[in-house]
Design a protein around this nucleic acid. Structure first.
Lengths: 231, 231
DNA sequence: CTTCTCTGCGTATTATTTACACAAATATAC
DNA sequence: GTATATTTGTGTAAATAATACGCAGAGAAG
């Protein structure tokens, strides 16, 4: 093993949150380094004795004080040799979902500040993070259609209309409320509670709950979730 | 940027090939190091001044003398800190497809030998490569259903029966020849040539050709390829 | 020249997806 | 406290897509 390799390994996390019918990404403001003052994805160098996913969770805790509902590896960015001005750094990017209502953000270590940014009005991110965010956004939209991850963006108990709005907002498409509900309910992975809640005016709705257990057991039997919204 | 990180970055390629109605993986035999004599995935350390994908292509050329039809990043393996006995190494694994008929394998540099192994009778691979191969195999099966990558495993011109067999073999399922053909042809991404060919006995069949151009232009219009075989 | 093997094609049945409208429950405005 | 606006909750018919299924044509092998 020739030992002259000079490559650093970083992880970055793209954490999506959903609130007030809008999609948000978590960014942190750099305290030090060439991107000082810039907003970037939470992340940093991996420690030699920690796993990649541990590194991501650590950085998320350190830089934003947040725990996520869902985490998966997105892509490793390492084709642009000059993506980091400090030298050759490859970044293993992770895709994550969180419920913004569950945590108040808190910057620590390397980060000056941590904030949720509406996807529709984002600052120019440092490094190549705009590219990474785009990739994650694509992943989110795709995944929403064939995996029930929307629930990880909502509170444990939610109104059906919130789920509807989430799909409409993120996929940017219309929806037929009746067909949507029929489809979701047909999978049997969403339970109706006997509680109700109302948002502003109108008839209050029942609260629903994603049934993780049921989903997992169905998955083993080769269950296939799919939601296709018309354009 | 604290500079005490001791992590090496490697790439590995899982190259699938298809011939004689069977699925093959490309492995190379290690010439040096702790896995000397063992069969492993082609790959190696990334050079500081080359991109990840360049590194993969270089290794494939060096260790097996092969060029692939399709290459995409699969996953970065870095959660098991001890996956490499020589120290902390993360591996960015690439998923690739090739046509075995197009190249005769030729080991060079670090590899003693390079060979295609039938997926049904593989040697115990070194490092954690068995895990990586399983992940790639899953990806192949999934992808076959929703992306027309089967063609990258066949010759440029192929018989419909070869495409059928490929799907049956890899997905391990039955097929209704008539419905399969109808579906594939309905997408308009496969052209019939006016040549025919026969394999052994039976009526000779027409040769077909995947229309890359057509596929790419359809893709832009939001085209969705999907082949679902019944269990 | 008979038999075997593989190719190529069409239609009826079933399942899935889409389109579509109105009454019930509450909040707000007057 | 009455009228109005807003949101929830539900069923059915039409259109589309997926499945099941059988037989004649072209060569190769014996």
């Amino acid at each position: 093993m020739v030992n002259d390799q000079k490559i650093k390994v970083a992880v970055d996390a793209i954490v999506f949150g959903y609130k007030n019918s809008a999609l948000y990404v978590l960014l942190v403001q750099q305290k030090y380094g060439p991107m000082k003052g810039k907003w970037v994805l939470p992340g940093g160098l991996v420690q030699t004795d920690e796993s990649l996913s541990e590194a991501v969770r650590r950085e998320l805790k350190e830089e934003a004080g947040i725990q996520v509902n869902y985490l998966e590896q997105l892509y490793t960015f390492g084709d642009d040799i000059h993506r980091d001005p400090r030298g050759r750094v490859i970044s293993v990017a992770y895709f994550a979902l969180a419920d913004p209502a569950k945590f108040s953000l808190q910057a620590d270590t390397d980060a000056e500040d941590a904030q949720w940014f509406d996807m529709d009005s984002m600052p120019a991110a440092g490094y190549d993070h705009a590219v990474i965010i785009t990739a994650a956004h694509d992943r989110l939209r795709n995944k929403l259609s064939y995996q029930p991850i929307g629930f990880d963006l909502l509170d444990k108990e939610f109104l059906f209309s919130e789920l509807e709005n989430l799909y409409c907002t993120i996929l940017g498409s219309e929806i037929d409320r009746r067909n949507f509900r029929k489809k979701i309910m047909s999978y049997g992975i969403v339970d109706e509670t006997n509680k109700t809640a109302s948002v502003g005016s109108g008839r209050p709705g029942k609260l629903f709950r994603f049934n993780t257990r049921k989903y997992q057991s169905l998955q083993k039997v080769g269950f296939h979730f799919e939601i296709n919204l018309r354009k």
